[in-house]
Write a protein that binds this DNA or RNA. Structure first.
Length: 614
DNA sequence: GTAGGGTTAG
């Protein structure tokens, strides 16, 4: 590498002036000074150029950056490698991959920084290229450092030999770096390999906030809210203060567990970061999924900045909680605000149409979504429309739509159709759909049970026996129904057939009283939904203690009148419990919310927000 | 001059 040609020989005042502007990050004057230098054929030193490039990079000044690039490759000048590396980095920051690649290819020599910059450019979505880069780098004899590994690990999403790479990192001794560790934790989490993620975490002698956030986020994203919350407690005990990322993951954990009260407590800490978009998005999602639309609405309206995720969350949240009209109104406001709907926004809109029974409007959005919003209908959009048609009783059209789908129907698609068959009592189509689901998901106990119930309800006992036999042969067991309720910041769990709750006797006694009273106002246990083929009274007994009934009773006993009884369930609510909840909401003047795995049921004054369709 | 963590559906 030659030194700058005339810098030493000619310390021109032009160069000095240029250097001053560059070091002050006065981009405008620096660029003018650079033009003057070019006219006189003089150049500055490498550090000055590097400073100028960093300034362009920080200011997002693309054109200026390209001018500097041209300037330092002027005839007769050979920039030092670290200046070219700075340029490379600038292009990567501007997301100008082609420019970065061209520059990289032309470099006569490349060091670990050059390679790492390229790897980090690819490690967002071009994972193959990032890994190829690592291999080429080895071939050129350049050894990766901790920067390289933390970049390349981001590209390992979907890499089968992650363990191998991990071992390689251990051998080089670079595993001790916190950045590398957090990247490892993150990759293992993305793979849902939380044992290994926790292994890396536990071995760390010192941890920083980001590492805590990585592990908490890992559990929160893998639907293990309890462990995420435990780790959050450990983090606080270790003396760390939560930041935006921590709180976002904690909120996500609350969302998954439907812990409204804990979520409210977290909200207090969110106020410290009230300008943070992602955190606020997580907050409104938490309130929506915990069924408190008042809180969601007020948090949403207080947001200074809203993006497509904020709008989509709120539109879907309203729709899922039964406020279809408001969801569609909000969607109109979204369009007026200039925010562009995406794939997920449209799902919320179709969901709203479906729940409001707006068949024509749903069809309209479905047919014109490509033209209106540039979004191609995907499997989930078809699902919403199948739900819409099913709700309206147009089962033939729904089946026709499944056969016309551009993508392969999956088990969710068939399950949607099955739901429609159940409501409209179409036995033959239900059997057809259930068989399709079993083909695609032979391990799912729920479908076998459902199929067996359909047979039982139509007295097809031989078929019932056949399904049961298949289940036994395949070793499939029923998942017991399970409901959760939060009272005084404590979670109470009720499982069908489990009597371990300390107050179970009192709950059962009070529940029996309640059932007597609701039967007095015309409630009849709906034995069609019983999961076993029992007879008469026995049937009623097994219904009587469904986990959601126990949870409702416990809520009525322990929550003050004005409080909503909020329950989360692991399985879909059964028809009998649904009727029961409606009657109780009217008779006891209580508001009850039950969130099952895919729908919300807001019971008030004897009516449910789902419109008795789920 | 190069690196790590958080949000919407399913």
């Amino acid at each position: 590498m030659k030194p700058p040609l005339r810098y030493v020989a000619d310390p021109s005042p032009l160069v000095n002036e240029f250097a001053n502007f560059c070091h002050q990050w006065d981009l405008h004057r620096a660029m003018r000074a650079m033009d003057a230098m070019e006219r006189h054929g003089v150049f500055a030193d490498a550090i000055t150029y590097s400073e100028l490039i960093k300034c362009c990079s920080a200011r997002g000044a693309v054109q200026e950056g390209k001018r500097v690039h041209e300037h330092i490759f002027c005839k007769g000048y050979e920039p030092k490698m670290f200046v070219v590396n700075t340029l490379l980095n600038m292009y990567v920051k501007f997301n100008l991959l082609e420019e970065a690649e061209d520059l990289f290819d032309e470099m006569p020599e490349r060091n670990v920084v050059s390679w790492t910059t390229m790897i980090s450019a690819y490690s967002n979505k071009l994972n193959d290229k990032a890994l190829k880069c690592l291999i080429l780098m080895f071939r050129e004899g350049v050894r990766p450092n901790m920067f390289t590994y933390s970049s390349v690990l981001r590209a390992c999403d979907g890499l089968p030999n992650l363990r191998q790479l991990h071992c390689g990192i251990i051998k080089t001794g670079l595993e001790s770096d916190v950045f590398v560790r957090s990247a490892l934790i993150d990759v293992y989490s993305k793979w849902s390999d939380l044992d290994n993620a926790l292994g890396v975490f536990d071995e760390m002698p010192t941890r920083d906030l980001v590492v805590w956030n990585s592990i908490i986020g890992g559990f929160a994203q893998n639907s293990d809210g309890n462990e995420a919350l435990n780790l959050f407690k450990r983090m606080k005990r270790a003396g760390f203060l939560a930041d935006q990322a921590t709180l976002t993951s904690v909120l996500r954990a609350c969302t998954g567990l439907a812990l409204l009260e804990l979520g409210r407590q977290v909200h207090v800490h969110v106020l410290k970061f009230d300008q943070d978009l992602i955190l606020n998005n997580a907050l409104i999602d938490m309130y929506c999924k915990c069924g408190s639309l008042e809180d969601a609405n007020s948090a949403f309206s207080r947001m200074v900045e809203k993006d497509v995720i904020s709008w989509s969350t709120m539109v879907a949240g309203l729709a899922q909680n039964g406020y279809s009209r408001q969801a569609l109104e909000l969607f109109e406001s979204m369009k007026e605000s200039g925010s562009r709907p995406n794939y997920i926004t449209v799902l919320g809109v179709l969901f709203a149409c479906s729940h409001a029974g707006l068949v024509e409007k749903g069809w309209y959005y479905f047919r014109s979504m490509k033209k209106l919003f540039g979004v191609d209908p995907g499997r989930e959009h078809y699902g919403c429309l199948i739900d819409l048609l099913g709700r309206a009783g147009r089962l033939d059209e729904a089946v026709k739509l499944i056969h016309e789908m551009e993508c392969e129907p999956d088990s969710v698609t068939w399950r949607t159709l099955l739901g429609a068959c159940r409501v409209h009592r179409n036995v033959d189509l239900a059997i057809y759909a259930a068989k399709k689901i079993i083909e695609l998901e032979p391990e799912d106990a729920g479908t076998y049970i459902l199929l067996s119930n359909i047979y039982a309800n139509t007295q097809r006992w031989e078929d019932v026996a056949e399904v049961r036999k298949t289940m036994t042969n395949r070793g499939i067991r029923k998942t017991p129904g399970c409901s959760w309720i939060e009272v005084d910041k404590q979670i109470h769990v009720f499982i069908l057939g489990d009597t371990s709750h300390p107050k179970i006797e009192e709950i059962v006694q009070r529940l029996n009283d309640l059932i007597e009273r609701v039967m007095g106002v015309g409630y009849v246990p709906d034995t069609n939904f019983v999961l076993q083929d029992l007879e008469g009274e026995q049937k009623e007994d097994s219904l009587r203690y469904h986990s959601e009934k126990l949870a409702i009773m416990f809520g009525l006993m322990n929550l003050s009148r004005e409080k909503t009884v909020r329950i989360r369930k692991n399985l879909r609510i059964c028809g009998d419990c649904h009727v029961f909840a409606k009657v109780v909401s009217r008779m006891e003047h209580r508001s009850i919310v039950i969130r099952d795995p895919i729908r919300y049921h807001h019971f008030q004054d004897g009516v449910c927000s789902c419109g008795d369709y789920w």
